[in-house]
Design a protein around this nucleic acid. Sequence first.
DNA 1: AAGATGTAATTCACATGTTAACTAAAAGAG
DNA 2: CTCTTTTAGTTAACATGTGAATTACATCTT
Lengths: 145, 145
Amino acid sequence: MLPPSTRRSLPMALLRAREVIMAHFRPMLARHDITEQQWRVLRVLAETGPLEATELANRASILPPSLTRIIKALDEREFITRNKVKDDGRRALLAISPAGVALIEELAPERTAIYDAIEKRYGAAQHERLLDMLESLIESESAPD
Amino acid sequence: MLPPSTRRSLPMALLRAREVIMAHFRPMLARHDITEQQWRVLRVLAETGPLEATELANRASILPPSLTRIIKALDEREFITRNKVKDDGRRALLAISPAGVALIEELAPERTAIYDAIEKRYGAAQHERLLDMLESLIESESAPD
DNA sequence: AAGATGTAATTCACATGTTAACTAAAAGAG
DNA sequence: CTCTTTTAGTTAACATGTGAATTACATCTT
């Protein structure tokens, strides 16, 4: 097997694909002075409810050092709250605040419209298939060995 | 259309997929004290021949400010050379050096083995289909309206 | 209870991502 | 030929990615 050229390698294709998709969302995020990762953290908390940092990091695919900084920023802007867990001084429960929920809800319509436009251009069926294939790839590669 | 949950959104799936793939390559890159992006730049130069910075940035999917820093690092380690373009004082031709070629060639076998293992787990046909679908997505979304 | 081990989170150091501003050089308009 | 505009590349400022070291706390062991 020849090594793939940079024109057809999986990591490059995944990177570029993510770039063209995120390009549609960046103007919206910039208007609200929030980063892509901060937005991801808020959405996970809004969907899932209060979480501890480790679980939040996993669900948002953010590394612990980054999450520490993001949590600090979101806390200072009062988009989230932190409550220490009783019986374990290390952990804290992170929850989205009403202001955070308001932000998510304010962005929701535009977010939906952007996804709809993508589905329209790419095809809803294709979109579903691509998600399935990506999940399958993640599954096949994240299992040990 | 409901907005996708974080568990099934295209940007998250692309991010996670890229993570699980790159996890296989990071130990190799770390052993040779080279970053993922530096490696990408070297591969593009090795495959394509000398390029100017803008073209190189496009092909490697790296933004100009990052490329400036990466080029500086690769130049200091003498993995690449820079030659000013005659008749245009702004541009410079960037080329991989013999040491750079040697590095790429040293990594090639392991790189191939890693890709083979991925194809074996995920399926070669699936792999090809996924690449096709990603290219199609990139095409459909990068065209201006 | 004291020490060893393990775990959650943070901090550190450095590289890259991202946007905006800036510099230098080239190309175009008058 | 001078002024304006465009283009290539860099610099600046701040946020995140990444791996290693560190801190604070829990748990285990004896």
